[in-house]
């Protein structure tokens, strides 16, 4: 059982959260090549080790979180509100 330290709600079990997959890289410009768009839409780093992910605290504060997690040890390395992580605090 993962235990994720939500910056708003505190330490909670993984069953309260929904994993939103790898955090996206920057959206390419509209005239970028098909290869770049294909990689943006479908490509994944899928690393064996630390990965940056989005997690939704669905049964909690309902905020999207930026979580750094190790895919081998399952250790949670850092948790921040996603808005803070991308510097867009409304």
């Amino acid at each position: 059982m993962l235990s994720i330290d939500c910056p708003h709600c505190g330490q909670r079990d993984e069953t309260e959260f929904v994993c939103g997959g790898e955090a996206p890289t920057g959206r390419p410009p509209p005239d970028a090549s098909d290869d770049i768009w294909t990689d943006y839409l479908f490509g994944n780093a899928n690393p064996r080790g630390p990965v940056h992910e989005r997690w939704l605290h669905a049964f909690g504060c309902r905020r999207w979180l930026a979580v750094e997690r190790d895919t081998v040890t399952h250790r949670i390395l850092s948790v921040r509100d996603f808005a803070d992580a991308i510097g867009h605090r409304p």
Binding site: M1, L2, E14, T15, V18, C19, G21, E22, N46, R48, V51, E53, R69, T71, V72, T73, H74
Partner: peptide, 13 residues
């Protein structure tokens, strides 16, 4: 299990 993992054990939920 509903998140990326390379751990060959799985989790309780």
């Amino acid at each position: 299990d509903p998140y990326a993992s390379y751990a060959q054990r799985g989790n309780m939920p």
